[in-house]
Design a protein around this nucleic acid. Sequence first.
DNA 1: ACCTGAACACCGTTCAAGT
DNA 2: ACCTGAACACCGTTCAAGT
Lengths: 232, 232
Amino acid sequence: MSKPFASVWLREPRKATSPGRSREEIVNAAVELLDEEGLNGLSMRKLGAKLSAGATSLYWYVANKDELLELAYDEVWGEMTISEPEVVGWRDAASTQAYSMRQAMLRHPWSADLLGRMPALGPNAIQVADRMRRMFKLAGFDGMDIDYAVGTLTAYVYGMTVPEIVWNAALSEHEYDPDEMRKLVATAVRDFPGMLERMNTDIYQDPQAVRAVAFDFGLVSVLDGLERRLVT
Amino acid sequence: MSKPFASVWLREPRKATSPGRSREEIVNAAVELLDEEGLNGLSMRKLGAKLSAGATSLYWYVANKDELLELAYDEVWGEMTISEPEVVGWRDAASTQAYSMRQAMLRHPWSADLLGRMPALGPNAIQVADRMRRMFKLAGFDGMDIDYAVGTLTAYVYGMTVPEIVWNAALSEHEYDPDEMRKLVATAVRDFPGMLERMNTDIYQDPQAVRAVAFDFGLVSVLDGLERRLVT
DNA sequence: ACCTGAACACCGTTCAAGT
DNA sequence: ACCTGAACACCGTTCAAGT
């Protein structure tokens, strides 16, 4: 109840000394393990083994597993790029940013899980937020509206990408067969005739392509909606 | 790799017989436990104890813990209401739907975590999707655009609400002191002068109010953006 | 048909002890 | 300063056995 707000980012890190392992090395190994085996694949013992160390030696560099995940999580944010809004204009920069967020998350599916578990307070996450603020400021937003715009765009990308990742994960556990999937979904949806309309589309033939179109549709809508805030 | 796509919703449930426990009873108890103690507070042993049963007797009703969570998750979707779009118009109905999604998730913070972990395939989730489709159809969307519109609105609400829940959870672990929080954030943000602008606003005095305004701002933007798809 | 307890293979984390 | 192994208190799940 009254213990202080805890996050790796609010503590000074142990200074890196030359010999032995480093926090950076550990985080890199953790990201690798997470990419290969998912969130459940990462245990302190496995990570220790990967570094040919005792499982508990990691606790010298990191207070606990959650801190380690915070550090790994921020690496994902570090992969998000943005073009300079000053040269390409804010709408282009916003689109680039949105696509790059989506791609970074898709590359590291475990980030979808962490997103719902811990706040993004790392330096990379903050840098992304800072860039987006500058972008929307340049667009003409003012005061708190800048933050609201950042929040809206970020929320859209999150909300679109997380279910995509979850869906990918569910599918990757077995061979994907469009017809079989169509039948399964038809079963789930049997009581809602309106939902059956979608059955005959090509969603199940090429889900990736459909999701890309869907992402575009929503992105354009969100950007149009934000642009509208500027003129009124 | 080649095991079939697994989800509670694609199996026939064991038919409820009169004596003994029921699946419904178990799910209710699970939701209660989740509300009280969060996702980590739910273990099969604890849930068993709550029902004064052996931990492993639950496996008669449910294949594993993930299935149980799927069932609990769908209960959250069951709490989302929508006004009839035919009487209030699609924009009003969409707003109501968005607020009610947000509220349902806020009432069950563990849903933020599940969202990034398993697809929502339960009957309640499907019913919500069906209602939203009808709503956007009435608005004038056509073909796949109906689904894209549903996806966009849903994504926005997710993406906005999940970080809100995560933030609430991080804060609820200690007494909230606006000034202390301001200082902590100032530390995290120290290298980004642009971010410091926000320091002097009232975000930290009344975060709840600010988040409500932020949600509105984005919701109006998203709906405006969707509306724009209709005229062009 | 339903429920049980023992057992297995895991966890994260603490801590005294080593170098 | 760094690393170790043993130990603790948990997990989810299986399964033979009970009623």
